[in-house]
Design a binder for these strands. Structure first.
Lengths: 227, 227
DNA sequence: CTCTTCCCTTCTGGATACAGCGTTGTATTC
DNA sequence: GAATACAACGCTGTATCCAGAAGGGAAGAG
């Protein structure tokens, strides 16, 4: 929805800004908000803000209590685990389907992206980090596209959004990074081999490894303190 | 979002009406639409229609091509399979978590709903069908609530919406109905036993059985012809 | 002194008005 | 006859406006 290169609409940028503010803690949990207040904060009218708020409500970042107004949802203790579990299910299924339906062009793209990630590993500069993050996102996006299931794609993008904060490679050790980079090659090969089982297992492995890293870095809680 | 008893907002009713029209084929696949046209059709202004359209876009019922306008998405051949597969993953996980986190009150509610479904089985009247459908929805909703994972809940409600058309019991044989009714008791017992593995397996079983029925009834395609 | 009631403030949902942009159709020129 | 350019129409995104509902505070009565 905000994945293309066109200039983001005001509604999209409002959504991205607010989500970022929530994840970064700039808008603290349990913060009481109003649409008008957010509109002024962003320098927009209420219309695009309303759209963004609606979306954030659907995605669970915000809560609208009947008499309590709008609130930032507090992350639960095991939220990170849940997100990874959901990602695990959806992405593994996506990889399975990609092995069945990917075009040759998509497979080539997967190998290209895996190569690009490897070339930057281990990251040494901000540019490396950014490029890796982008290539990684593109890799997963390509797989979902190859899965030929728009529904699955939209659901996953929701789950990934939730885990966005975890997608930064900056918390990875050099060893972590090389391992994850290898995984991308494995996944691409499994899909190229048209082997759904292998692709599913490779993706499961990949996501579980990422979960383990996140768990180790974050301890039990999320990146945003629960209180 | 439209689960409470209060009078539905115009946006919600627009959403429900449009979704119904799409699923029933009243708005045929590939139909070209405009927000204004829909607004006039529904006798509303563009604002609530816009909200409904946005939601339908997220859920994949509609597609907005950059220069092509708004279109009703054509169901893919294996769409039903995908929906059930996603439900399988999410609901099984939900049942697993419910076994860990459900309160005694929620467990009692599950038994009560399972009993209500059994009492109506096999359905003999329209009222029976409606009550069963409602109790079934409540059963699954209660489990998701007991899973203590709002994110999971919102994702599932998205997936279930997609499969809404399949939730009617009217295509079930008497044998199907009694089997599904038994499943609800099994699931409730597994959760009451606080056994996550059992709960997950019971729910998997339940969803897979439902998928088999839908597959048999629908053949390969969806309920709405692809063209 | 406390409880209840009424009014005012504020917030959200819905409608309408406006601007920018893309598409399409037509006319003119090569 | 075909291609290109220009004009007009339509659609979407954004802003502003209006009404209804809900909450808080203040004032009056018990």
């Amino acid at each position: 929805m905000a994945e293309d290169g066109r200039p983001a609409s005001a509604a999209d940028s409002a959504y991205l800004t607010l989500r970022g503010d929530i994840l970064s803690g700039d808008l603290p949990a349990d913060e009481r908000l109003t649409e008008l207040g957010l509109a002024e904060r962003l320098g927009l009218s209420r219309t695009p803000v309303r759209e963004a708020v609606k979306r954030l409500l659907i995605e669970g970042f915000l809560t609208r209590a009947p008499g309590e107004g709008l609130r930032v949802t507090a992350l639960q203790a095991d939220e990170v685990e849940q997100i990874f579990r959901i990602r695990l299910m959806l992405e593994s299924y996506g990889a399975r389907r990609a092995a069945e339906f990917a075009t040759e062009a998509e497979i080539a793209e997967l190998f290209r992206l895996a190569e690009e990630i490897s070339a930057r590993t281990p990251a040494r500069s901000d540019a490396d980090y950014d490029a890796m993050t982008e290539a990684n996102a593109a890799f997963h996006r390509t797989i979902m596209q190859a899965a030929r299931s728009p529904r699955l794609g939209s659901m996953l993008s929701l789950a990934v959004n939730l885990g966005l904060v975890l997608r930064t490679y900056r918390m990875y050790s050099a060893q972590d990074m090389t391992r994850q980079a290898r995984h991308h090659h494995d996944i691409a090969e499994a899909i190229a081999a048209r082997d759904p089982e292998w692709a599913e297992a490779a993706m499961s492995h990949h996501v579980l490894a990422a979960a383990a890293i996140a768990r180790a870095r974050h301890g039990q809680g999320g990146s945003r303190p629960a209180a």
